[in-house]
Amino acid sequence: MSGAGDREPVFPTRQSLGLMKAKLKGAETGHNLLKRKSEALTNPNTVPEITRRIDEAKRKMGRVMQIASLSLAEVTYAVGGNIGYQIQESAKSARFRVRAKQENVSGVLLPAFEAYQTEGNNDFAMTGLGKGGQQVQRCRETYARAVEALVELASLQTAFVILDEVIKVVNRRVNAIEHVIIPRTENTIKYINSELDELDREEFYRLKKVANKKQRDTAAADAEMKKKNAEREANGEKHKAPEVDDSTPADILQAEGDEDIIF
């Protein structure tokens, strides 16, 4: 793992170790922040809130549209015929439009639609003049309310789509940091450390060797010295050193031999 694993292509130097450590720290901080952002986006109040509202709104929409269709049925009932074609042909300019504005959720800009109705252009004022006009106007109001609900839902949905995209990006980044960048940096650090250790050991061994050699040299030098001294002494005071050496061992052997017999 350590050396063979995925790592940055760096020279194992102390400087790059420092760099890597800084990078790891940065990655961890970034990971924490992104994780928190992702949590902020997915967990507490935003996305579930939005999705819950979408879910609710979608279900509510079914109901709203049913009411609206019934009011259209009422028009058909009162007018006594289908007005669809006429409506399609007389549509000219949209009275009902939307305006987009932005909303900030955890640092993500979400667009929101706002419905508004332009004044004074009514393509269908005359529809049902002789019969059913009141129903037509009422139906228009009902449908306008329904469309408002739809617009609201559309904003939620757009917000969700964008948020979903952002969450995906953030999560991808969190995962990338967590599963790729951090392990890789850690690997690199480990690698650098191991390389450095290796170097240390080599250095130590080398030093030891040097030291040994020095010792040996010293010892040799010492021996040389002794030899010279001994030679010098042998010439002068020859008896001194052998006297000490011979007397002591002789004493020990004698003492031991006596006591063993009793046992």
């Binding site: 609206a68 269709s69 009011s71 259209l72 289908n82 007005i83 669809g84 409506i87 399609q88 549509a91 000219k92 300019s93 949209a94 009275r95 009902f96 439009r97 939307v98 305006r99 987009a100 667009p111 109705q117 009514n122 393509d123 269908f124 037509v136 139906c139 228009r140 449908y143 306008a144 329904a146 469309v147 739809l150 617009v151």
Partner: peptide, 27 residues
Amino acid sequence: FRDRQFLAVIGDEDSVTGLLLAGIGHV
């Protein structure tokens, strides 16, 4: 998105009629 101000509809006749009545129709 600021230029986007209309709604479009693809649907059966009744849905389209209703939504046009609401005033979303634009030619």
